[in-house]
Amino acid sequence: MLLEVSDLNAGYGDVQVLKSVSVNVREGEVVAIFGSNGSGKSTFLKVLAGLLKPWGGTIRFRGRNVEDLPPEERVRMGMALAAEGRRLFLGMSVEENLMMGSWTDRGRVKENLERVYTYFPELYEKRKDLAGDLSGGQQQMLSIGRALMSNPVLLMIDELSLGLAPAVVSRLAEILLRIREEEGISMIVVEQEVSLALEISDRAYVFDLGEVVDEGRSEDLLRRDSIKKTYLSVL
C-alpha cells in the first residue's frame, strides 16, 4: 500500500470538517474523490500535503508515518499537490514556476523541465510568459506540471476540471493517462464532475459532510443506482 490514511480528523479553529476519514491508495493506482461542495475534499488533500495539521489519525506514506512531518519533507518523500486555487507564482515566468516545483529536487531541474515539457508542449511555448498571463487551462497545466517537477510518486490534484472548457478537460485527462502510463505514479484526483472522475480512476471515494460515505471500484460505482441518482442525475 502506498498511502494508508486511517481515522483522520481535522478542521479549522474548533470547527471539525473531516470525521474519521480512512482512504487507501495502492502503488500505481488512480483514486478519485468526489462529493458535494464543502464536503471536505480540499481539506483532506491539505492535510495529506501537510498544509493543515490533523487533530487525530494517521497518515502512512511509503511505510512511514508522515502526519507530523512538515510539507517539505512530504514533497521530498514523493507527495505533490496541485492545489485548489492553483497557488501559482503569477508574477514569475512559466519556466520559473516549474523550476520552483523542483525545489526539493534541484539537482535534476533540467531533466524535470524536459520531462514536463514533453507532457505539456504548450507550456514550453509559453515558458517566458508570466504565469499570470496564461489562460485557465494553461494555468491548470502549469499547476500539474509544477507538481510533477518534484518527481512525485503520489500526485494529488484538487478540482481537475473546475472552470475549464470541455476540450481542455479531455486533453488534461488524456495527458494524465499518459503520465500514469509513462511514470507509473499514483494519483488522487478530486473531481466534481462525477462521470469524469469515475472514467479516469480505478477506485473512488465519495465524501459527504466530512465523511467517506461510499467507496468502491469506479466501474462498479458507475453502475450503482444510488450514485446514478445523486451524482449522475443527468443520465
Partner: peptide, 23 residues
C-alpha cells in the same frame, strides 16, 4: 539563485511556496 527565487516565491504566494516544499 535558488535562495532568491524562494524569496520571490514566498512573496508571491506563501501557500504556493509551501506546496513546492519551501519553508
Amino acid at each position: 539563485t535558488w535562495t532568491g527565487r524562494s524569496i520571490r516565491a514566498v512573496a508571491l504566494d506563501r501557500e504556493g511556496a509551501r506546496l513546492v516544499g519551501i519553508d
